[in-house]
Amino acid sequence: MTDIAARGYAKPDVLVSTEWVAAHLNDPNVRIIESNEDPLLYPSGHIPGAVEVDWTTDLNDQVVRDYLGRDGFAALASRIGITPETTVVFYGDKNNWWATYAFWVFQLFGHTNARVMDGGRKKWVDEGRELTRVVPTYPATTYPAPERNDAEIRAFRDYVLKHVEAGGQLIDVRSPAEYTGEKLHMEGYPQEGALRGGHIPGAQSVPWARAANDDGTFKDAEALKAIYLQEKGLDPHKETIAYCRIGERSSHTWFVLSYLLGFDKVRNYDGSWTEWGNSVGVPIVKGPNPR
């Protein structure tokens, strides 16, 4: 894969390479954060000095379906030893799926000094770089966390409903079978955790992983434009809402559209299909077409 700076991204500085990370393992101003879908990966071996931020235990409220609040974020930041000045670098499994999710949550608290390691855990491992099982500890910090700001990059159901009624731009990043509402054929299999299948009216289908290369790195800007702009006809100047099942896969697409393609306004609808597909009276489209 070509050098990050040469790939034509709108905001290339948001990505760092594995080489960059390897050169900053002992940089006190940098904190490497692993965030995975599979909870066994970090304890089985991680980048030396990396801390783990776990989606279920660290980023979610443990009672309400919501993310942690200001106090929770301040406590998390203190535990992993960061201040607002610390450059946090996320990486993880599944093409950085969960790393971008953690990145998105950190943006709800305005921690803009954040990066993602291109290629994620897979690239680091494939390059034969060092892994350790030693869990580091850092001196606790005091992080003056702001209130969580849901107004800019997050969408709630009623907002999405108005967006749909106005003919707004949406992107469904689930698998094609989830998008069409196709039932799984074998008896006894779990569905999507929703009572209805299909997609939100008007949503274009672009499975999230299309943005990644086989080695886990992000595709270059031209390849991404070919998918999102030319193939799907999305307008980067129109507000776009991305969703999936619970908002994790769509955070990856939110990242791609916001930082790599420079869309003006992108929101992640974290209620996603588990909310929409269980809601009474909301419009749903079945089949392969957006409307």
Binding site: E37, D38, P39, D54, W55, T56, T57, M186, E187, G188, Y189, P190, G193, R245, I246, E248, T274
Partner: peptide
């Protein structure tokens, strides 16, 4: 695996059990 795994992870693992049981 405990209850603090993601919904997707839980569904995937249950899918393995379901397929074997099926």
């Amino acid at each position: 695996f405990g209850k603090d795994i993601s919904m997707g992870k839980g569904q995937g693992l249950m899918g393995i059990v379901n397929m074997a049981v099926y």
